[in-house]
């Protein structure tokens, strides 16, 4: 379960690549060979996770980066993080 207190980092078995402007990016999970497309906001979140951070920190930083953040930002981010966690793209730090 992902909560605001959860601390996340990227799975080192994942390679990310940005695509063209407004095209987001792609993530390749090396062990499974599966790749996943993410939109520009997802790519921004991926960038924020780089150093490892709590979900609450991530949401705060994203709110600063996004112009006119929607009221559902926190819910949207939590949903996104649960998906990428389920796909083993991020790791919950103990």
């Amino acid at each position: 379960m992902i909560s605001p207190e959860t601390r996340l980092c990227r799975n080192p078995q994942v390679v990310a690549r940005e695509l063209g402007e407004s095209e987001g990016g792609v993530l390749l999970h090396l062990a499974s060979g599966r790749y996943h497309g993410i939109n520009t906001v997802g790519l921004t979140i991926w960038g924020l996770i780089e150093e490892g951070c709590t979900v609450a920190d991530l949401i705060d930083r994203l709110r600063d980066l996004v112009e006119d953040p929607p009221p559902s930002l926190e819910t949207d981010v939590l949903e996104f993080l649960m998906i990428v966690h389920e796909r083993d793209l991020v790791i919950v730090e103990q």
Binding site: Q13, V15, R17, E18, L19, G20, E23, V26, L28, L30, A31, G33, Y35
Partner: peptide, 17 residues
Amino acid sequence: TDADRARCFTAVADIAR
């Protein structure tokens, strides 16, 4: 190998971009 899959993926993404 992980290293070669990563190399290849990076190259392919850069070409596609």
